[in-house]
């Protein structure tokens, strides 16, 4: 089953579910599906119904806020003469946290189907539905994403830090993580 077929099935099964195809431009062309988080759990149940019975991997991606610069060529008329003008347009793409699930079908020997979900931002709107009720194997790996990226999984049976200790307040896999200043004194000495 291709990604577009899966996408069509999801949209047919869940009214209002927004599914986008995320195109991977590299030679591997490993495309994936971006599902909106409001329908995440329902979509996961549908995917499981499509015999995607094995979730092998859960990981997360940190997307900090970034500014994208595009050069747009427009034609404008100056004093009756048409000229082509190159304009630089800067767009701010808001940051978010993204969780990635790799799904396989043991029954049909297919996969991986890569499914993504994104949070609203990186600070206070970081809740995503937990898919552990659908795939039990996601439990520890969702805890890892919670621990290292700070994504809160709604509906997770036991959401605690898994690698770092209780009481640790940072999210070390985020791109803006800075280790404590006295962590590496030898480097400090060289500065």
């Amino acid at each position: 089953m291709t990604l577009n077929e899966i996408r069509a099935r999801l949209q047919a099964a869940i009214p209002g579910c927004q599914v986008d195809l995320v195109v991977n431009g590299s030679p591997s062309a490993h495309n994936s599906l971006l599902i909106d988080r409001q329908h995440g759990l329902e979509a996961a149940r549908v995917l499981r119904g499509l015999e995607l019975d094995y979730c092998s991997n859960v990981t997360a991606v940190d997307w900090p806020e970034r500014v994208q610069t595009d050069k747009i060529k427009t034609k404008q008329v100056f004093d009756g003469v048409e000229k082509e003008i190159e304009q630089t347009v800067k767009t701010t793409i808001p940051g978010c946290l993204e969780v990635v699930y790799h799904l396989f079908s043991m029954a049909k020997k297919e996969g991986p189907v890569v499914v993504r979900m994104r949070t609203g931002n990186r600070t206070d709107d970081v809740t995503l539905p937990s898919l552990t009720p659908v795939w039990r194997s996601a439990e520890f790996q969702e805890r890892e994403a919670f621990d290292l990226y700070g994504i809160v999984f709604d509906g997770h049976p036991d959401l605690r830090r898994i690698l770092m200790w209780e009481g640790f307040t940072d999210y070390p896999m985020r791109k803006d993580y800075v280790p404590p200043p006295d962590d590496d004194l030898e480097i400090l000495g060289e500065r």
């Binding site: 009481g167 640790f168 280790p179 404590p180 006295d182 004194l185």
Partner: peptide
């Protein structure tokens, strides 16, 4: 275990602190 790392980060009685 502290909020950001180990507290203290080193024991100055033992460690030859480069700073």
């Amino acid at each position: 275990f502290g909020e950001h790392g180990l507290e203290p980060a080193q024991n100055d009685e033992v460690f030859r602190n480069p700073l």
